[in-house]
Simulated assay, not measured.
Amino acid sequence: MDVKSAFLNGILEEEVYVEQPLGYEVKVFTENNPSMFDEFKREMAKDFEITDIGLMSYYLGIEVKQGEDGIFISQEGYVKKVLKKFNMNDANPFGTPMECGVKITKQDGGEKVNSTYFKSLVESLRYLTCTRPDIFYSVGIISRFMEEPTTTHCKMTKMIFRYIKGTIGYGLFYVSSSNFDIVGYCDSDWSSDLDD
């Protein structure tokens, strides 16, 4: 639902106080109840000009596909844009985001690269972790080297982009179910960090 309203932009030099209006009521929707949503829309339409735009399909660069069995979110469009930005469209896909057992340090002897460019690469990947937990660990590793990146760090970062190129349609699927288990994993191998 799109609520149309006016916003004034400018520098305020006065103190502004805001207070909740009398009769204001907070409604919380906790279940998938179509009649409750219809009532909410009617109430909103009394005070605001609104347009019902249907189910959400896109939000902050995240594509949303809603179905009977659940909701799938991904960033396929963003991935394509980022691959193009960093000239990785023609890169060969790689099967994993990082080679197993690789240990890198801040001072690996590689030639230094432009830190602004490297930070841009890493930040693009960090935004992708919203819908791609499969790259979270690898992106965390390369994030350690943003201050003084080398060609080795850049090569590892581009390997993650190659993995993403081969898995462009991956995302998160939230199943409609009342019966689920939450399972978490943690890497507690602090001895493999060669810098700290």
Rank of each mutant, 00 (worst) to 15 (best):
F72D: 09
T105H: 01
K81I: 02
G67M: 13
Y137Q: 06
P21G: 01
V79W: 02
A45C: 01
N114D: 15
G95M: 14
V139Y: 03
K85V: 09
G140S: 10
F48A: 01
D90F: 13
I62E: 08
M56Q: 13
Y163A: 03
E13N: 13
R42A: 08
N33A: 04
I104F: 04
E15W: 01
S115R: 15
L121Y: 07
T30C: 10
E31P: 01
S188V: 07
S115M: 14
L8F: 01
D189A: 03
Y78K: 04
F145N: 03
K65M: 14
V16F: 04
N89M: 13
G184T: 14
S138E: 13
F48W: 00
Y185H: 03
V139A: 00
Y185G: 05
D193G: 03
S178C: 06
V139N: 04
A91K: 03
I135H: 02
M44W: 07
L172D: 11
A6H: 04
P34M: 03
N9V: 12
G110P: 00
S188G: 10
W190R: 12
T131M: 00
L172H: 14
D189P: 00
V175A: 07
I53E: 12
T150V: 09
I142V: 13
G109A: 10
D2C: 00
E39N: 11
V18C: 11
I135L: 03
F48D: 02
F72R: 11
D108G: 06
K4Q: 08
S120G: 13
Y59N: 05
K165V: 09
D193A: 01
C130A: 08
L83V: 07
G110S: 05
E39R: 12
S35Q: 15
V16Q: 06
S120F: 02
F72T: 11
C186F: 12
T157P: 03
Y127D: 04
E63L: 00
F180Q: 06
T157I: 07
I53R: 10
F94P: 04
R42D: 10
I11G: 00
V16D: 06
K103Q: 15
K158G: 05
L128I: 05
S35L: 12
D181Y: 06
E68D: 11
M156T: 12
V82Y: 02
T152D: 08
N87V: 09
N33Y: 02
L125T: 05
K158Q: 10
F94K: 13
D38L: 09
I71Q: 05
M1V: 00
V139K: 03
S191I: 13
M146W: 13
I168A: 07
K46P: 00
Y185R: 07
G171I: 06
I104T: 12
E147I: 15
I168G: 07
E123Y: 08
L194W: 00
P149I: 14
D108L: 04
V26G: 01
N32V: 11
A91Q: 13
V139Q: 04
T152P: 02
I73Y: 03
K84A: 06
D90K: 15
D69G: 08
S192R: 07
S191M: 10
D196R: 10
E76D: 09
C100Y: 14
S5E: 04
E13Q: 09
K85S: 08
S5A: 00
F180W: 08
Y17R: 06
M36Y: 12
V64N: 11
S188R: 10
